[in-house]
Write a protein that binds this DNA or RNA. Structure first.
Lengths: 402, 402
DNA sequence: CTATTTACGTCAACCGTTGACTTAAAACGT
DNA sequence: ACGTTTTAAGTCAACGGTTGACGTAAATAG
């Protein structure tokens, strides 16, 4: 997010880069032979040999003895990654629970635990204590085998995070400007770096990675419709952070300059029309238990209850407006609708279709593909795994020799 | 804009990177000694020696014999770049004229020529012919001395450009989807690569570079208010292109989802309220000669003529809405208002101030600094120079030995 | 059974940085 | 006046990394 002052490069950087290239190439087309890696990466055979040896020495890659006939010459010796070599740790904070999870490099869940709690919103000490215990438990589980490498654990936070990892605000946890990382790190049995990341951003990462490696969007936005509306922009799979790391938030896109004042200070924000809280309020449903009210909302919509339909009509027009903004201003490939939006999509779709139709004649470039999120509640934790996996794939040299 | 499939790295890349680091460090703090470069870049003295020798061999750097006392030890030997070593070429296309320009590496204008013409809008052949002649003249002038290096000439185009350099549309030139580069390249006396770039983007680059090297915005947006509203986003000085290279365009940000249909297909776009054409139409002034009408508009505003004030009130609210969107969605450091906006700023300012005040209590992160463009009509050509200069600074190894 | 084809490993040459050391040239202290 | 201190800049062996040419391995085709 924040570019460091440009630093000198050394030969070792070249090695790291190419090693990452080889591992990524393998991970994307597993299993495959060295010769295929050579073809895909453009590296010469000598280098591929060196790199695969190096990766094998770090326990990340194995030769599955299997040879394979098919063509004419010497059979190819297939390589595979070793999922067991790495375990990723994620702890997800939410209003009602703390969830811990350990996965292997392939994403298989090896351990999972949920701590349901009735902690009052805003009780930081209690939250940190519970999160700390869960982290300790997850880390201990992950590290019970000394032969596995464990990248920095990810703490999934439902709230705005600055690039320096301080929380700006979390409605769900009842937090204002807070430094969660310091007390959390201090409380760990064995101190280590923690990666604090936003729920929505990790959800976006899941959706991004759901596309096959050769068909991934260059510029993708993820619209996370929950009580409030959040969002994320991914450029070639990297978070676009902006000046403070808060970019991508689409909940406060203005859709009506004449609209009412929003809590953020601006007027007519998307949040005021598409946020679940806003919709429920319009329809006259209680907002304390959004999950239950959502069910009731959908019922009423299916019965074509006028107030509900009107609220979703407004929501749809607001979403179309925001989509028009995002598509033209950030030139997107793909917009993914997440959170409760897939559930409400049938009533939102007509407005999006209208926009697409109107634009297709004049500015088809500004019509990104629209997709619904494939992963539900699991998305953020999957994203945490993908993030940790990314750390390993980006710099395999950080994984020690076995 | 479009990331290439990741390519292997070699030792030579390291050299290029560090050579660029050294040259940039020197260019940003000219004149300075090798020891200062060492301190700023983190490179060791041996490498700095090698690099400065290399840069000197390419004629980009000179030792200005001057030694300077001051401290205690051996006097520092100051280095300077050699502006004469490089000449940049830019040709700017506009509705009424074609302007050519040659500058040195320091931005000094060495040659300039304007070809006023009455070409009918949309006459591509005529436009290409005139632009080609101007390019030939400028290139010939730039290259009359065989000891200078001339990077790819920049063609400044007032219109949307894809990342593959095809024009999507240019209202000013009366063009639709057009490939300008191919016919233009073919017409050159000696064929060479041309860089086609958008007027507004280059203007943004000028404004970006106007900040001292250590105080540059990380995420900056440039709002170019002309007949229509254009825009650009710069991330650490690089254009943010998005999926097709069209990102940054803020003219079609939705500010009123209930607003009238815009030419782009969406509703209530910023363009419809803040574009000069839109404003003039509202006020009832002719739009054929925007420059003259702008003067009349300002007169009326100064006399507090009600219709004019009302139009600018609407424009100001629209701009505030778009600003709220841009600031929260792309998390900006700085917004620069260009084109005619500085002229109209007194009447727009109150609405921006209101937004800033309302946000400062709740979401101060979303209050970017707002500045007026410092460079007027010259901005795009200055930007073209900065772009060409950037090519040299980014990879000095492309400049041959003298 | 030999030729051909494809897969993979080996190694000298090359490029680039580092870090320790040397040389250069001034100012300070006595 | 002269040696000491301090800072600037160049030199070079060692090291890490890639390339490209060549050699070896192991299958199939005829």
């Amino acid at each position: 997010m924040n570019r460091m002052p440009p630093s000198p490069a050394v030969s070792a950087d070249v090695g790291r880069h190419n090693m990452s290239l080889v591992l990524r190439s393998l991970a994307d087309h597993e299993p495959c032979a060295r010769s295929e890696i050579r073809a895909r990466t453009g590296l010469v055979s000598g280098t591929v040999t060196t790199m695969t040896e190096e990766l094998a020495a770090r326990g990340l890659v194995q030769e599955t003895g299997s040879v394979s006939g098919g063509g004419r010459g010497r059979p190819r010796r297939l390589l595979r990654t070793v999922p067991q070599r790495v375990r990723t740790v994620a702890v997800q904070l939410s209003s009602g629970s703390v969830m811990g999870e350990v996965r292997d490099l392939a994403g298989q869940v090896l351990w999972a635990k949920t701590d349901e709690h009735g902690t009052a919103a805003g009780d930081i000490d209690e939250l940190v204590a519970r999160a700390g215990r869960m982290l300790d438990a997850a880390i201990e589980t992950a590290e019970d085998d000394p032969r596995v490498h464990v990248p920095a654990p990810v703490v999934v936070v439902p709230g705005l995070l600055r690039s320096d990892a301080t929380v700006v605000a979390s409605l769900e946890l009842g937090l204002g400007q807070t430094d969660l990382r310091t007390p959390l790190t201090r409380r760990l049995r064995r101190p280590r770096d923690l990666a604090l990341m936003n729920t929505g951003r990790l959800g976006a990462l899941s959706e991004y990675a759901a596309h096959p490696p050769d068909a991934r969007p260059h510029a993708m936005a993820y619209v996370n419709g929950l009580e409030g509306v959040g969002g994320t922009v991914l450029l070639d799979g990297d978070f676009y952070g902006g000046a403070h790391g808060l970019a991508g938030e689409c909940g406060h896109i203005t859709v009506d300059m004449n609209g009412p004042r929003c809590g953020c200070g601006a007027r007519g924000c998307l949040d005021l029309y598409l946020g679940l809280t806003a919709i429920l309020t319009r329809v006259g449903l209680p907002t304390e238990d959004p999950a239950r009210s959502l069910g009731e909302l959908v019922d009423r919509l299916e019965r074509a209850e006028p107030t509900a339909c009107e609220a979703l009509d407004t929501a749809g027009r607001a979403l179309a407006g925001a989509m028009a903004t995002m598509a033209s201003y950030t030139d997107l490939d793909l917009v993914v609708l997440g959170g409760v939006l897939p559930r409400l999509f049938p009533w939102l779709e007509p407005h999006l279709d209208e926009l697409v139709t109107a634009r297709s004649r004049v500015t088809p470039e500004f019509n990104p593909k629209v997709a619904l999120a494939r992963y539900g509640k699991e998305a953020p934790r999957r994203g945490a795994w993908l993030h940790s996996r990314g750390l390993v794939l980006d710099d395999p040299s950080r994984v020690p020799y076995v």
